[in-house]
Each structure stands twice: as structure tokens, then as C-alpha cells.
Simulated assay, not measured.
Amino acid sequence: MKKTVLITGASSGIGKAASRLFHANGWNVIATMRSPEKETELTALADLLVVRLDVQDRDSIDSAIKAGIDRFGRIDLLVNNAGYGQSGIFEATSREKIQQQFDVNVFGVMDVTRAILWHFRANKAGLVINVSSGAGLFTLPTLSIYCASKFALEGFTEALSYELLALGIGVKSVIPHGGVAQTGFQERAGADFAVDPAGLPDYNEFLQRAQRSFGAMIAARMMTSSDVAGVIYEAATDGRDQLRYLVGDDARGFVKARRSMDDQAYVDFMRGQFAG
């Protein structure tokens, strides 16, 4: 029997690349997105259902899962991919923007996961893959809210993996780090950048240094959405009980520093990235 995957945030970037890859490898695919009426490429593929799912709308979550089960009989894998990055100075970021970041990146993942667990329990099998970020392992200035949401996601993913182990349900985290090309992430992050240069001029000098540092990071970016999709597929099919799968180029050494240095040495190393 063909396996079935439900993928959130499948309208572009990693979600769309994953939808294509799983379909090409013989899976039934439930590609979910906020505006399915705009999709033309995926709707042309057989054994691929495009359906509306907005992680902030719990009715749409339930409807998408039901539509997928009605179409294919069962769901074997959930890929929680939908998310975005709120950027900017914390002091200039409104409470409403912070709430929305957590509603999508954390509470949305929790709501979709909770909505499908009854089905996985009934089948005594299933796998949840959460698409996380290097920002859930290390932090960067002007990304405090995004980092906070991804640290929360990493904690949730790890704890949930212990909770569901005895039920035969797996939980894994795929962690792109170093930046992903061919997604709308940078464009949205730039458009939503929170800063008030008139009211908060004290940050101007720091922001100039941070922009230079981020420019170097972006220039070194080599990873594509297809690269990340490949690791998601590996995590789904390798039969291992590995929790975290990292994908990306650690050119700036952030992951290595986090994992190899003692806490203060790591903090000093990271501070040095933005000191001048």
C-alpha cells in the first residue's frame, strides 16, 4: 500500500519541494496551504491532493486531515513545515507580532499535531517531522522572537518524541541552518522587520554592524529548498530513531560552537560576530 504524507506550507519553498519529492517517490501527498485556489502545478499531479489548511484556523486543520483520510484511507506522515521568521529589534516589535509568530511557528504546529494523533494512535503507527531551524540551536540578534519560537519548537519536539515512543509514533526534527535559497523567508522577514529609527536611535550603530554580519552570512548561503526536502525524505524513510537531522553549511561555525564550546566560550564567540 502506498504511504501518505500531509505537508503544511506547501505553496512554495521547502513545502512545495517536499511535495514534489514525496510524490516522485510514489507517495500519496496531501499538500496543504492557506490559498489552494492559487496553486496550479501541484493540482496537475495524480495522487496529490491540494487542500486548504491555515495553521491559525483549527477548523481548516480538521477539514484538511479529514479530506486526506477520505481520499487516501490513512495518513502515515505529518510534515509540519509552515512557518515564517519575525525579525527586527525586540523593543520595536509589537506584542501582536510576537503573538502571531508563536501562533504560527509553535501553537500552529501543536494544533496540527494534536489533530492527527488520534489517527496515528488508531493505526498504532505514524511519524511527525517538524521543520525547525538553526535558530532553535543558536541565537542571532534581530531574530529574538523567531529564535524564541524555534527554541520552543525544539523543546516541544524532543519532549513529544519521548511521550509518543511507547505508542509506536515517531517524532523527528529537520534543522536547516545557514540560510535557504529559493524561499520567501528572507523577503517576508525583510518586509516585517521591526525597527523605529526615529524613536529608537540608540540601536542604529548596532544595526549597521549586524547588517554587515548578516550580509556575509547570506552571501555564503548555498542550500536550496530541494536540499532540505531531501533530508525530510531521508528522515521519513531511513527507519532510524534519530531525533535531529541537520542540513546546511556551518560556514560561520555557529553549530560547531554551540556543540563544542562551554557556555561562556560560546557566548563570547557569538558576541564577537557582531562586535565590530
Rank of each mutant, 00 (worst) to 15 (best):
K66V: 06
I69E: 13
Q101A: 15
V55Q: 11
R74L: 04
F102M: 11
A67Q: 07
D62N: 13
T93R: 12
V51L: 01
I89T: 00
R52K: 15
L49S: 02
L53D: 06
V109M: 13
F72A: 02
F72W: 02
S63I: 05
S94L: 08
Q100K: 09
G83N: 11
I98E: 12
V104T: 15
A92I: 05
G68I: 06
R71L: 10
V50Q: 05
D57P: 09
F102I: 09
L49W: 06
I65W: 11
Q101K: 13
F72C: 02
T93C: 10
D59E: 15
V104S: 07
G68T: 02
D62Q: 15
D54W: 03
G68K: 06
A82F: 10
G68N: 04
N80F: 08
S63W: 09
E91K: 12
D103H: 13
G108W: 14
S87V: 06
K66F: 13
F107N: 01
L77Y: 12
G68W: 03
K66R: 14
L77D: 01
G68D: 09
G83Q: 11
E96D: 14
Q86K: 12
Q56C: 15
S63H: 14
R74E: 09
E96G: 09
R95S: 14
A67V: 02
E96M: 08
Q101L: 12
S94V: 01
N81I: 00
R52F: 05
L49Q: 02
I61R: 10
S94Y: 06
Y84T: 02
V50Y: 10
S60F: 11
I75G: 00
G85Q: 03
G85P: 10
S60W: 04
G88H: 02
N81T: 00
E96P: 00
G83F: 03
N81F: 03
R58H: 14
L78A: 04
A67K: 06
G73R: 03
F72E: 00
V104I: 14
F90W: 08
